[in-house]
Amino acid sequence: MYRRGHWGVSLLVFAPVGLALVLAGRPDLAVVGGGAMLWLSTLPDVDHRLPVVSHRGPTHTLAFAVLVGAVGAGAGVGLASVLGGDRTTFVAFGFGIGTLGILAHLLADALTPAGVPLLWPLSSRDYSVSLTRADDALANYVLLAVGVCATAAAGVVALRVA
């Protein structure tokens, strides 16, 4: 997928998480998490700029998602020390958002015929549902619209419940 498609899938995946955070009394984490999801949405495509890493290679795997989650956990430690609060909550939040951000990217790319090597280095098999091509502009805009609508719906529910 292209950037807009990745943004849309990230918003779609995060909408229920953001809603849960708001309902749990943490709208601050919902906002930070949503921003982090959008920021991470294209991180795996850094492989386009790395000369020794093939596109949809190691950065498009579950291992990379866990690695980014670990970095997010480290950021959670820093966030807890700056903002104060329960360190465990911030570490779990950082890990969860880091991992989920990459998983959303992988989900979007799995919609394309090329798929993603989820289990690399254990397996080189590419996983794909072959729903649309990555360069399909309409599909990318539809994914963005669905993500925005899911986020808006979560916001409406949060306002009505809270």
Rank of each mutant, 00 (worst) to 15 (best):
Tyr2Arg: 05
Arg3Cys: 04
Arg3Gln: 05
Gly5Ile: 12
Trp7Ser: 11
Val13Tyr: 11
Leu19Asn: 11
Val22Asp: 13
Leu23Cys: 03
Gly25Ala: 02
Arg26Lys: 09
Asp28Ser: 04
Gly35Thr: 13
Ala36Thr: 14
Ala36Pro: 06
Trp39Arg: 14
Leu40Trp: 14
Ser41Phe: 03
Leu43Glu: 00
Asp45Phe: 10
Arg49Ile: 07
Arg49Asn: 08
Arg49Met: 06
Arg49Tyr: 09
Val52Ala: 03
Ser54Arg: 12
His55Arg: 14
Gly57Arg: 07
Gly57Glu: 07
Pro58Ile: 13
His60Ser: 11
Thr61Ala: 01
Ala63Ser: 01
Phe64Glu: 02
Phe64Asp: 02
Ala65Asn: 05
Leu67Tyr: 13
Leu67Cys: 14
Leu67His: 07
Val68Gln: 07
Val71Phe: 14
Gly76Val: 10
Ala80Ser: 14
Leu83Asp: 07
Gly84Ala: 11
Arg87Ser: 06
Arg87Gly: 06
Arg87Pro: 03
Phe90Ser: 02
Phe90Leu: 12
Val91Ala: 05
Phe93His: 01
Gly96Trp: 12
Leu100His: 08
Gly101Trp: 05
Ala104Leu: 09
Leu106His: 12
Asp109Thr: 14
Ala110Phe: 08
Leu111Val: 09
Thr112His: 04
Pro113Asp: 00
Pro113Leu: 00
Ala114Pro: 01
Pro117Gln: 00
Leu119Lys: 01
Leu119Asp: 00
Leu122Pro: 06
Ser124Asp: 04
Val129Gly: 04
Leu131Arg: 13
Arg133Trp: 12
Ala134Gly: 15
Asp135Lys: 12
Asp136Leu: 15
Asp136Asn: 15
Tyr141Leu: 08
Tyr141Ile: 00
Tyr141Ser: 04
Leu144Phe: 10
Leu144Ile: 08
Ala145Ile: 12
Val146Gln: 06
Val146Met: 11
Val148Ser: 07
Cys149Trp: 02
Ala152Tyr: 05
Ala152Gln: 01
Ala152Trp: 08
Ala152Phe: 07
Ala154Glu: 04
Val156Asp: 03
Val156Glu: 05
Val156Gln: 04
Val157Met: 01
Val157Phe: 01
Ala158Trp: 00
Leu159His: 07
Leu159Gly: 14
Leu159Val: 13
Ala162Thr: 15
